[in-house]
Structure formats: structure tokens, C-alpha cells
Amino acid sequence: MSKKILVIYTGGTIGMQASDSGYVAVPGFEQLLRNRLDNSHHALLPEFEVLEYEQLIDSANLRPDNWRQIASSISDNYARYDGFIVLHGTDTMAFTASALSFMLQGLGKPVILTGSQIPLSQLRNDALDNMITALLLAGESRPVNEVCVYFNGRLLRGNRASKVKATGLDAFDSPNFPWLGQVGIHIELHRQLLIQPAAEKFQIPEFDPAAVAILQIYPGMPATTAAAIINQPGVRAVIIQSYGVGNLPDADAELIAVLREAAAGGIQLLNLSRCLQAQVSQGAYACSAVLNEIGVISGGDMTLEAAFAKLHLLLATESDPQAMREQLQRSLAGEISLD
């Protein structure tokens, strides 16, 4: 039986056209796509329909409310389709993939995000291959039942993906987790890595865009800078981007005092490494031992995108601070490696 796929076009480079002010999102993507597919073996592709947003999103303008919009498009149409493709701009694709993985836990159908570095409207582009392969993956007879990013031959767990190149066609990678599959002459899926279907737990809450802030540690950073970020109105959680395996300047008593005060005031502090490949280990060096004392939570090997989206979801759905701390250190959708 042929699969039926819903393609959700949210905007992004894949559907843009050149203008005097640079590439801009324009309506009418479905017709452009079908015109391009007329020159390919489109009869071998699964049947698909396109849902194009009336207000297209340049992904640099993405806000947490857009996650809710996309998740609702999937949830509202979940019973009618066998899989979903979300066409999205590359700049914030990994944030959206992470958010969807937490909002749509227990998926029994594939949700694949893709896009391109060169618009489909251009003669030479990566858009058509990404689109065709995403359709084939979404229509697999043994479906990949999780949120993924497919880009340039790589199938990645959505909440493990990061954009690592601004102009290379291999824009995305999964620095702390193996690829779920690779596409060359053949499509090779590593099924032992896939999340197994479970009871569906779809949560599509209202988000407060001010709730999560990011504090990147750098040499000589004044404590007043950290305080200004942490004490912004509405901030309830802060991601600390520290050095190496979770280190920060413990000799800076004023900075430590700012973090201690924030934790005592109920702000959730989550420690991630600035390194692309890393596993936070608070206390491995003496300069990070104080974080355990303060109550800073180790983010393990989560990506910044996954941690940001996970905090937003938990702040929107969990009222018990201790339960939130516990869930931050658990794997909700394969986003963190556990010892």
C-alpha cells in the first residue's frame, strides 16, 4: 500500500528566489516542486500533499511560537498521513527539530526536517536531492519513527543535530551521536539506533520566549555581564556555555556569587560545553566542583539547540522545580547519553 506524506512548507532557502535585496521567501512552492519532479522518476516517490504556510518564515526570524505552529500542523493531520516532511530554513532547523522531538514524543510515524543551501529555483542546487531523499525516507516501508534532520546524505536524530557549516552543502552533523543513516548509492539505515515507538505523548504548550537565556563564558567576563543576562525580566532558566568538560573561572568570586544567587532564587542553571564534541563532567576539574555545590545541572552531551528547546518545553509544562531538574538529566527523546 502506497504511503501518503504531508510536506509542510514553512519557508527557508529551499523555496526562496533571488531579489534585489537577496534571497526572499515566496509563495507557490508546490508548483515549483512538482515542475522540478516532472523531470525525475517521480512515479517512484510516495504520494504527497503540500501544506504551505500563508506567512512564510525566514528561519532567522524563528520564535518558539513557530514550534507550536509546526507541531500543531503535524498533530492536526497526524491521522491522515503516514509521514511528515517539514521544509525549514537551515539557520534554526536544529532548534525546531529538537523542539518537535520533545513536543511529539512517542511518534509512530516519521517527521523529517530538510531544506537546502541553494534554492530549488536555481539551476544548480541541493534542494531537489534533499527533497526526493526525504520523501523516500518518509515513505520507508519500515518507518523511521522519530524526528530527524535529513541533509546532504546524512540522516540525523533531530535533537542531536547542529548546523556546522554556513555555506557547505554538508551543513549539518551530529557531533555527539552516530548518524541514523547515510544515503549514497544505497539508503543505509542504522535501525539499532532508532527510538522505538511508544505511547504517544504530544504536548503543544504556549511558550514564553523570554524564559530561557544563554550565558557564554569567556576570558575576563565581568560578573555584571552575567548578572545582566540572568536578571533579564522573565528569565527562568539559563544555559551556561562553559569551557571543556564544564569548567569556568572559579577564581572569580563575583561571578560565582552571581550564579549562586541565581540558583538560590529558583533559576534553573544548565551547564553545557562550548565545544562541539563534549560531555560535561562537573567536578572532573576543581574549577567546576563549585557548580555541583551551587546546584548547577550538568547538560551532559546535549547540543545547545536540544538543551534550549528542552528547557522551554519543561518550563511550559512542569511546575515542580525538582521534577524539572530530574527530567533535564533524563533522556526524553534520545537527546542525551546516560551513563
Results as ranks from 00 to 15, higher is better:
3 K>T: 11
5 I>D: 09
14 I>Q: 00
15 G>Q: 07
25 A>G: 06
30 E>A: 13
46 P>V: 05
57 I>P: 08
58 D>V: 07
61 N>G: 01
61 N>K: 12
68 R>D: 08
71 A>C: 08
72 S>Q: 14
72 S>C: 05
76 D>E: 15
82 D>L: 04
86 V>W: 00
86 V>F: 02
90 T>N: 09
95 F>L: 15
98 S>P: 09
99 A>G: 12
100 L>P: 04
101 S>W: 10
101 S>G: 11
108 G>C: 07
112 I>E: 04
116 S>L: 09
117 Q>D: 05
118 I>V: 15
119 P>Q: 10
119 P>G: 11
131 M>L: 15
144 V>E: 12
145 N>G: 04
150 Y>F: 15
155 L>I: 09
162 S>R: 13
166 A>F: 07
173 D>E: 12
176 N>I: 09
177 F>Q: 02
178 P>M: 06
187 I>G: 12
189 L>I: 15
195 I>G: 09
201 K>M: 14
202 F>C: 06
203 Q>V: 15
204 I>Y: 02
208 D>G: 02
210 A>W: 00
217 I>S: 10
220 G>I: 01
221 M>T: 06
224 T>D: 12
227 A>Q: 15
228 A>Y: 03
232 Q>E: 11
240 I>S: 01
242 S>M: 05
243 Y>V: 05
249 P>V: 05
249 P>G: 08
257 A>M: 04
269 L>E: 08
269 L>I: 12
270 L>D: 11
271 N>T: 04
273 S>M: 10
277 Q>A: 12
293 E>L: 07
302 M>F: 02
306 A>T: 10
307 A>W: 05
311 L>D: 10
313 L>D: 06
314 L>C: 09
321 P>V: 07
323 A>H: 13
323 A>Y: 01
327 Q>M: 15
330 R>D: 12
331 S>R: 02
336 I>Q: 00
